[in-house]
Design a protein around this nucleic acid. Structure first.
Lengths: 117, 117
DNA sequence: CCGAAATATACGGAAAAACATATATACAGT
DNA sequence: ACTGTATATATGTTTTTCCGTATATTTCGG
């Protein structure tokens, strides 16, 4: 079951999914609560879109304790990796993408960066 | 009215539109009858999708006699031009894109290449 | 002016996507 | 075992997208 090019673009065509993907491209791994906070959308909405990305093989997930971390799938075809990277570079400073990054940076109690040094 | 990045991807997410765009990327200008023949789809379908691309500013059209030629819009944002170019490079040899190119090359009586030398 | 070819649009219906709300599952700490 | 937190999924609905057919518009050749 190979994914058709148009299907990749269909996945990028929803703003919530695109914001998640570009944030992962910039930050590496992110858990659902980080994405939910950064984008300012309700959790089921984020989960639903992440499931679509996972089912298509665009992202991988990894459970760590209560959290599930998502990242871009390392085995993507070269061209689609490039498309995501190019898009990130092109829209980085625009809304809502710049705001997502800022909101993530301002998030308190992020799971990865523990309180204990 | 600036186009949102996700909207660009929405336009690329339909296979008919994507095939038209990639063929234009490779061939330069193409008229509707060439696209109709190359893709093997009915004319109103091609016209409808070309109208969507034109309304979004992704392509330009130019009337020459009875024919209307479409090409990628020269003033596109750099990142989306790169996305289209990268995609072309990545999927060039796959179906249905390779077949579209072949069907176009095999088309008799193409308007541009006149019968008279 | 008339017919034919190229292209565009209008229309009604079918299929797909996205949504919010509600609920289920998994894990952590007690 | 119980509670709270994180995440996933199910459900019913609304919105969007896509389609084929039919028709309109433009242009050319006569």
């Amino acid at each position: 079951m190979t994914i058709r090019p148009s299907h990749y673009f269909q996945l990028l065509s929803d703003e919530t999914r695109l914001r998640c993907l570009l944030l992962m491209q910039q930050e590496g791994e992110l858990c659902v609560c980080e994405l939910t906070h950064a984008l300012g959308v309700i959790q089921p909405k984020v989960s639903r879109h992440l499931a679509a990305l996972r089912d298509a093989g665009l992202v991988m997930d990894r459970r760590q304790g209560q959290w599930i971390y998502y990242r871009l799938h390392p085995g993507l075809p070269e061209w689609i990796s490039q498309v995501i990277a190019t898009t990130t570079g092109g829209v980085l400073e625009q809304a809502p993408f710049a705001n997502d990054r800022a909101a993530l940076a301002a998030m308190p109690n992020r799971p990865g960066s523990a309180c204990c040094a």
